[in-house]
Amino acid sequence: MTSCHIAEEHIQKVAIFGGTHGNELTGVFLVKHWLENGAEIQRTGLEVKPFITNPRAVKKCTRYIDCDLNRIFDLENLGKKMSEDLPYEVRRAQEINHLFGPKDSEDSYDIIFDLHNTTSNMGCTLILEDSRNNFLIQMFHYIKTSLAPLPCYVYLIEHPSLKYATTRSIAKYPVGIEVGPQPQGVLRADILDQMRKMIKHALDFIHHFNEGKEFPPCAIEVYKIIEKVDYPRDENGEIAAIIHPNLQDQDWKPLHPGDPMFLTLDGKTIPLGGDCTVYPVFVNEAAYYEKKEAFAKTTKLTLNAKSIRCCLH
Rank of each mutant, 00 (worst) to 15 (best):
T44M: 07
M195L: 04
A294I: 03
Y173S: 15
H256S: 13
N54Q: 04
P183H: 05
H159T: 11
N210L: 05
L30V: 03
L150N: 07
E40C: 04
K292E: 07
I96Y: 05
A39I: 11
Y153W: 13
E84T: 15
G237H: 06
N37S: 11
E40N: 02
V179C: 07
D107P: 12
K224A: 06
M198W: 00
A148C: 09
L126P: 00
T277K: 15
T20I: 03
V48Y: 01
K224T: 06
F51H: 15
L99C: 09
Q42S: 13
Q42M: 12
E24W: 00
D104K: 13
S3M: 10
I6G: 13
I127W: 09
G212N: 05
P151M: 06
K80Q: 14
Q250W: 06
L272K: 03
H201D: 02
D234N: 14
E211Y: 07
G258E: 11
E285F: 03
G101D: 09
N133K: 04
T298D: 00
I206Y: 00
D85C: 15
L136Q: 05
Y223T: 01
T2D: 12
G22I: 08
M261R: 01
K224H: 10
Y231L: 06
D68S: 05
D266A: 09
F135S: 01
E178V: 13
E76S: 15
N77C: 13
A171D: 01
G274V: 03
E227Q: 07
N54L: 04
L192T: 08
G176N: 08
S169M: 07
F295L: 06
S108L: 08
L265E: 04
I170G: 05
A165M: 12
T167I: 06
Q194N: 08
C67R: 15
W34M: 01
D275W: 06
T118M: 06
Q182P: 01
S161H: 15
L301M: 09
I143R: 00
I206A: 06
D266L: 05
E235Q: 06
L187Q: 05
L192P: 03
F215Y: 15
V14M: 03
K268V: 07
S146F: 10
V48A: 06
R132E: 08
G212I: 03
E227V: 02
P151I: 05
E95A: 14
L156Y: 08
Q138T: 01
G27V: 02
L162D: 13
L272A: 13
N134W: 10
R43L: 04
I111W: 01
L75W: 13
V179E: 01
T299S: 10
L255Q: 05
L136F: 02
F295A: 00
I270A: 04
T264E: 05
T167N: 06
A15S: 04
T119G: 00
Y231T: 03
L128W: 01
S131I: 06
P87E: 11
R168H: 10
I157L: 13
T167L: 15
I72P: 14
L99G: 08
P232F: 03
G180E: 00
E24N: 06
S120T: 09
A202F: 01
T62C: 13
S108G: 12
L265K: 09
T53E: 02
R56T: 11
P174Q: 08
E89C: 05
Q194C: 14
T119L: 01
L126H: 01
C276W: 08
I96A: 06
F295C: 04
H201K: 05
G185M: 06
A93C: 10
N121P: 03
L46P: 02
P55K: 13
P50V: 09
H5M: 08
P257M: 04
Y142K: 00
H5G: 08
Y173C: 09
L69I: 12
R92A: 15
I11K: 14
R132G: 15
D114I: 03
N134D: 09
G18R: 02
T277V: 15
F205R: 00
P245D: 05
H207A: 15
Q250S: 14
S108R: 08
K60E: 13
S169W: 07
D107C: 10
V175D: 00
D275P: 14
A286N: 06
D204E: 05
T166Y: 11
S105W: 12
E158Q: 07
A305N: 02
G258W: 13
R43S: 04
Q194H: 12
K32F: 03
K228H: 07
R91G: 13
S105G: 07
D204W: 00
L272E: 04
L265P: 11
T298W: 02
V222E: 00
E221F: 01
E24V: 01
W34S: 01
I170F: 07
P102L: 15
A171F: 04
L30N: 01
H141S: 08
H313Q: 07
G18P: 02
L265N: 06
D190W: 03
L303E: 00
I308P: 03
Y64C: 11
I170N: 06
P260A: 06
V154I: 15
F282T: 05
D275V: 15
N284P: 02
R71E: 09
N236T: 07
A7C: 14
V222S: 05
Y88R: 06
N97L: 13
G274S: 09
Q184N: 07
R43Y: 06
F209G: 00
E8M: 09
V14C: 10
I111L: 12
G79R: 06
I112S: 05
